[in-house]
Design a protein around this nucleic acid. Structure first.
Length: 828
DNA sequence: AGCACGCCGACT
DNA sequence: GTCGGCGTGCTC
């Protein structure tokens, strides 16, 4: 990799490097490589560079060349921070691809990809070079100050230097002192984290030798507590010689004090020692082997193997409880036996206990986790382990794609349809499911996308033979899939066979299920109690002051909440506008359904599972426990409930207000509704095969409900695909959404009109939709407008995309619009 | 993104 | 009269 485009060092060639900086700026930056670093520098290494007057950043080398820039003078790299490249070339290529495809700056990707302690800025430390003779006569005032400061304190960081050197001169001063070989950047920059140490105890070897033990015990006779403590440690130690005794153990186990332990240590009977302990909890129990695959799974496996042989990625479509996990485990095992490593992606780490438990039992310490809930130090530790090839299977969320994998052989994307793979609110915007396939290409690794309800895009790709389609149509152990029944709520209402939002029929079914000691799941995907609080007299509606949305009433916490900015308010008892007391609540939230259920089933345990009720620490674990023990009889939840709850005793799933799932204005609303209903249904009758799904609706003729009832997978996907084709949506076009935000509405409006007109200048009229106000016209006091681009797929797409970029350049020329936040969502 | 510079309003 | 609001320009 090194010196590939370089001449022998005989001529006085100057070399340059393109550096990725952790800034949301276009492109990379050119720096001069000082002679003494020319031999060391390689792609993917971290370097320290000055940037703009007073900042120093940790950048990544993305290119080495000898083209001197003509329009500016390149500054010099201060130092190299790694002995070996920290970023594998596959990752560098991956970053470049993401930046290109998703039109995001590579610096933003760098920021997202690296734990922050690997890209320190002003925490950088300087020190004097050992044994240098300093000639003070040639130093200027600032250089003198810095040297003097370093003579007093060995190390100083940049932030501290600001106190005595003008900001503008910091970098200049440091550079000249480095050139004079007086000071250097401390290499410890990358070592700011320390491996956590854990204290352990052991009995002094001499005590155990010969027949010393009785004597020791005797010496402790008038210190009974110490004697007990000693015996506890001794017995624990002898229980299993291989497991060291943690210091914390003695305080958890018995009622001992630190002074008692200290006495034993002082007497030399017990020794305390420290061991470096991974911050990450790794499984310490025994590892287990897998059960054999069933016949159906074996067939699926051979199909997967076949696909891999043809270098094709797999879409594993397996109905709920078909044993996809089992197949994953099998393929993971194959990959490891091949000497390669595995990345297992999950939409969210928290809701997937089961897979983690199974993998832990199998792989013990060579299993790693990576997700957003880790602290920065924990992330760095996983980072190092991956780099050192100590982890064979990494389970993680989308940000795990950026780890410096060695020898990656397989990526599994579980629940590939899940929207958590492409959150809209975090930048850079990318779809982890698609990105995983690209990353795999750079590593020549295989990919399995798995789901019971594949995304329409993946299904289509499989149909077009871009993915290899493997279908597990039967549940594990040939257990029946749940039956689906539609309840026509309008009819029931006419007959007055309803109570609140429940038909008598639904109530009877739940009752019957409860009598058989079976558990019930109720899905209602709307938070709070009432969606709208309204004055009957004057029509006043309570809006959020920061956003263009109605505030939701939460009865449980007795407040009004804005679900977009989090603002809270008290519920008005009289109308603030006309003083009428006639305040009405409209729109049914989950709390209202909960209230009704408790009234209908006063004897039974009803538990609610939504963002609001799960906010407390361990709330999820507690509920999980309650369901496992059977204490929870009716579990009511928002979409949260569709994930991870694999229990044997749930037989009924009811969706009292199913129409609400379709009343979302989004071309994916139907797909989402289908996925949600099917996923929740999958919780029912996983063992007994007697699961029953009840969907209450005003539209029993709606194709989505009909097709779910008929359980005809092919037809439902055909239905989706027809609709998408008819109205020109993905997968038939490439969708690109541009969003403009600003706190002044007129400005946002004008800017988006202008951008729209520029886009129309370059693109065919039918490709540009809008601009128009976003569905929520204002969030957190920012007005939002959007432009939707429907671009043709295939060869022309790249041309169109370059025209979009051209339009952006033209837009950026208007300085007045620079304060407008522009976000681009490719594959929206 | 972050920072400096420069130009206008409401205040010690 | 000054502090500080943010619009504008620049960073290898």
């Amino acid at each position: 990799m090194k010196t590939d485009n370089r001449q022998p060092t005989t001529d006085n060639q100057i070399y340059f490097a393109q550096i990725i900086l952790p800034l949301n700026l276009k492109g990379t930056f050119t720096y001069k490589i000082p002679d003494n670093l020319v031999e060391e520098i390689e792609l993917g290494m971290r370097v320290l560079v000055p940037f703009g007057g007073k900042k120093i950043y940790t950048g990544i080398v993305s290119e080495l060349h000898d083209r001197e820039p003509e329009t500016f003078a390149a500054k010099e790299i201060i130092n190299i921070l790694d002995e070996k490249p920290i970023l594998p070339k596959e990752q560098l290529e991956f970053w470049q691809w993401l930046s290109n495809y998703y039109l995001s700056n590579i610096g933003e990707i760098y920021r997202f990809a690296f734990p922050s302690s690997l890209k320190l800025e002003s925490e950088t430390y300087l020190k004097l070079k050992p044994n240098v003779e300093i000639n003070f006569e040639n130093l200027d005032v600032n250089e003198m100050y810095l040297i003097q400061a370093l003579e007093v304190r060995q190390m100083i960081n940049l932030a501290e230097i600001e106190a005595f050197i003008p900001k503008k001169l910091i970098v200049k001063t440091i550079n000249s002192l480095i050139d004079l070989r007086y000071i250097e950047v401390d290499e410890k920059i990358s070592e700011t984290y320390k491996a956590k140490e854990v204290a352990y105890l052991k009995v002094n070897k001499d005590v155990l030798r010969d027949n010393f033990l009785p004597e020791v015990l005797k010496s402790l006779n008038n210190a009974p507590k110490q004697k007990d403590l000693f015996l506890l440690i001794l017995s624990k130690q002898q229980e299993n010689e291989d497991i060291p005794v943690k210091k914390s153990f003695v305080f958890e186990e018995g009622n001992f004090s630190h002074s008692q332990l200290k006495a034993l240590i002082d007497k030399g009977i017990i020794e305390e020692y420290l061991l470096q302990k991974d911050r990450l909890k790794s499984y310490e129990g025994k590892t287990e082997d897998l059960e054999a695959l069933t016949e159906l799974q074996k067939i699926a496996k051979s199909e997967i193997d076949q696909a891999f042989e043809n270098d094709k990625n797999v879409l594993l479509h397996g109905v709920t409880a078909s044993g996809k996990t089992h197949l994953y485990l099998d393929k993971i095992e194959d990959c490891i036996n091949d000497g390669k490593n595995v990345l297992f992606l999950l939409p969210e780490i928290s809701l997937t206990k089961q897979i983690i438990q199974r993998l832990e039992k199998k792989y013990g310490k060579s299993l790693g986790f990576y997700h957003t809930k880790l602290t920065d130090f924990e992330r760095v530790e996983v980072w190092r382990k991956i780099r050192n090839n100590e982890i064979k299977v990494l389970i993680g969320t989308r940000n795990a794609l950026f780890l410096p994998f060695q020898n990656l052989g397989l990526i599994i994307v579980d629940e590939e349809h899940d929207f958590a793979y492409r959150p809209r609110e975090v930048s850079p915007y990318f779809n982890a499911k698609d990105a995983a396939q690209i990353l795999a290409k750079f590593y020549s690794a295989n990919v399995i996308l798995g789901s019971a309800t594949p995304s329409v895009e993946s299904y289509y790709a499989a149909k077009k033979d871009k993915l290899s389609y493997v279908f597990l149509s039967k549940r594990f152990g040939n257990v029946d899939l749940p039956t689906v029944e539609l309840i026509n709520f309008e009819e029931e209402q006419k007959l007055q066979f309803t109570k609140g939002h429940f038909s008598f029929k639904l109530i009877e079914e739940i009752k019957g299920n409860l009598e058989q000691k079976k558990q019930n799941i109720i899905l209602h995907n709307r938070r709070g109690y009432a969606n709208v609080v309204e004055c009957e007299t004057c029509g006043y509606v309570h809006y959020c002051s920061n956003c263009d949305v109605v505030m939701t009433y939460h009865k449980y916490s007795r407040e009004m909440k804005c679900h977009y900015c989090g603002q809270k308010a008290t519920k008005p008892t009289v109308c603030p506008k006309c003083n009428s007391e006639n305040i009405n609540e409209r729109g049914v939230g989950i709390e209202q359904i909960e209230e009704e259920l408790q009234k209908i089933f006063p004897e039974n345990e009803v538990d609610r599972m939504d963002v609001d009720s799960m906010r407390k620490k361990f709330a999820y674990e507690q509920l999980y426990e309650k369901i496992e023990t059977g204490e929870a009889e009716i579990i009511l939840g928002t979409q949260m409930i569709s994930k991870g709850l694999d229990f044997d005793n749930i037989e009924l799933v009811a969706i009292p207000k199913a129409d609400a799932l379709l009343h979302v204005q989004d071309f994916r609303a139907e797909e989402r509704a289908y996925q949600l209903i099917t996923q929740v249904s999958g919780r029912a009758g996983r063992v007994s095969g007697k699961g029953k799904i009840l969907i209450q609706t005003y539209n029993p003729q709606h194709p989505v409900f009909k097709l779910i009832q008929e359980n005809s997978t092919t037809e439902i996907y055909n239905h989706f695909l027809e609709e998408r084709k008819k109205f020109l949506y993905p997968p038939f076009v490439k969708l690109l959404m541009i969003e403009l935000k600003h706190r002044r509405e007129d400005k946002t409006d004008r800017a988006s009109q202008f951008l729209g007109s520029v886009l129309r200048k370059y693109l065919p009229a039918e490709c540009v939709l809008g601009p128009e106000k976003s569905p929520i016209a204002r969030i957190k006091n920012l007005y939002q407008y959007q432009i939707l681009l429907k671009l043709p797929k295939g060869k022309n797409y790249e041309n169109f995309k370059s025209l979009v970029l051209k339009s952006f350049e033209e837009f950026d020329e208007i300085t007045g619009y620079h304060s407008i936040k522009k976000s681009v969502f490719v594959d929206f």
